[in-house]
Design a protein around this nucleic acid. Structure first.
Length: 199
DNA sequence: CACCCTTTGAAGGAG
DNA sequence: CTCCTTCAAAGGGTG
């Protein structure tokens, strides 16, 4: 990719493709500046501040494509969240099995721009009926993402940023690292000299 | 049943 | 600072 601004700092309109000054997307974005990633401290911005700028395209942080979950997934502290039903998919939390059989709810990562785009458009690819496997569908979506007009991409970058900000405010101490190792990857050992995947 | 595959982007640790 | 690794979604395929 090109280059990230400075880590830990949320920069508005930071679309990797370049400037993304989508003024019709969200108006007064200066209020987000000054938030540092991780948000471990001073989550002084209320969620209401962000939700006042909710884009209609995607329900922020709820991650439900079509249906809102019966209860807000993030209404409880992470550690205190009761073991939810097994199908926590498409909500913000997910249960993982620990060695001793204990289920723990985990706060998932906020979706990035491409993930939001995927959730919106993958059904279109499926309806075309040529591909069924997600891997193949995602490959198509990746190409379409690159072909997407910059202004369209910016919509998703803005959305993803709002998701991140809201996520930070809801879970000030949360780190993406919290979920590391929750699913075991096999490819930890790799032949020397080549990256695990061509990325 | 759990992981793989495949994509892009975000995040954080390592060097 | 750059580089690398992991996870986020999705669902058919695989062991």
């Amino acid at each position: 990719m090109e280059r990230r601004p400075s880590r830990g700092e949320i920069v508005l309109n930071q679309s990797p493709a370049g400037k993304c000054q989508v003024s019709d997307c969200c108006e007064p974005q200066q209020q987000y500046l000054g938030l540092t990633s991780g948000g471990r401290h001073n989550a002084t911005h209320t969620a209401a501040t962000v939700s006042g700028c909710v884009h209609p395209l995607v329900p922020l942080l709820l991650y439900s494509d079509r249906h809102l979950p019966p209860a807000p997934p993030y209404s409880q502290p992470i550690g205190a969240a009761p073991a939810r039903q097994a199908d926590d998919h498409s909500s913000g939390t997910h249960t993982f099995h620990h060695g001793n059989g204990v289920h723990r709810a985990t706060v998932k990562k906020p979706l990035n721009a491409f993930m939001l785009y995927m959730k919106e458009t993958r059904h279109q690819v499926l309806q075309e009926g040529r591909e069924r496997e997600s891997a193949a569908v995602n490959r198509i979506l990746g190409r379409r993402w690159h072909a997407l007009p910059r202004s369209e991409q910016c919509k998703y970058y803005d959305l993803a940023q709002k998701e991140r900000l809201l996520h930070m405010q809801l879970y000030p101490g949360w780190s993406a690292r919290d979920n590391y190792g929750k699913r075991k990857r096999k490819r930890s050992q790799e032949p020397t000299g080549s990256s695990p995947r061509s990325r």
